[in-house]
Amino acid sequence: MKLAGWIFLLVSLGVGGAGLYLYLAFPFLALPTPWGLWPLYLVLPGAYALGLSVGGLYALALGLGGVLGRRALLREIRRLQGELSALKRERIEEIPRIPDREEA
């Protein structure tokens, strides 16, 4: 997990540095969009942030699915344990008593 944190930090710094470089060296570069011209130094970090937020939402959805799946499995285990204890109560086997031993 530490490695993933360092990689995330380095990539984020790289994207920020690339945006700053584009701002300082090529402020005139722009991309045409339906909403007008957008400067490239804003589009690059914006696209990175958009991808990061979509990835975060995907991770949250995946985690939520795991929690719900675990809850369903635990519910099934409790149900099966209840069935097993009911079967044990129905079928009580007598333990033979040995006459020369004391009861525990």
Score class of each variant (00 low, 15 high):
M1G: 15
K2A: 10
L3Q: 13
L3T: 15
L3W: 12
I7G: 02
F8H: 08
F8R: 04
L10P: 01
L10T: 10
L10Y: 11
V11Q: 04
V11A: 08
V11Y: 03
S12Q: 06
L13Q: 09
V15N: 05
V15F: 14
V15R: 04
G16I: 15
G17F: 12
A18I: 15
Y21P: 00
Y21V: 06
Y23P: 00
L24M: 12
L24W: 15
A25L: 04
A25R: 04
A25G: 00
A25P: 00
F26D: 03
F26A: 00
P27H: 02
F28T: 08
L29N: 04
L31S: 01
L31A: 09
P32E: 14
P34G: 11
W35D: 08
G36P: 10
L37V: 05
W38Q: 15
W38A: 15
P39F: 09
P39N: 11
L40V: 15
L40Q: 01
Y41M: 01
V43P: 08
L44E: 03
L44N: 01
G46N: 03
G46L: 10
G46A: 05
A47L: 15
A49C: 10
A49W: 08
A49T: 11
L50K: 01
L52D: 00
L52N: 01
G55P: 01
L57H: 06
A59G: 03
A59W: 14
L62Y: 13
G63A: 13
G65V: 03
G65M: 09
G66F: 11
G66D: 11
V67Y: 06
L68W: 05
G69W: 06
R70E: 11
R71N: 11
R71S: 11
A72K: 14
A72T: 07
A72S: 12
L74F: 11
R75L: 06
R75G: 02
E76T: 05
E76R: 14
E76P: 01
R78L: 12
R78W: 11
R79K: 07
Q81C: 07
G82C: 02
G82L: 09
E83C: 03
L84F: 07
L84K: 03
A86Y: 01
L87H: 06
L87A: 10
K88S: 05
K88L: 12
K88I: 04
R89I: 03
R91E: 07
R91D: 04
I92V: 13
I92M: 07
I92R: 12
I92N: 03
E94C: 00
I95K: 08
I95T: 07
I98F: 12
I98D: 09
P99R: 13
P99S: 09
P99A: 10
D100W: 15
R101D: 09
E102S: 09
E102H: 02
A104C: 00
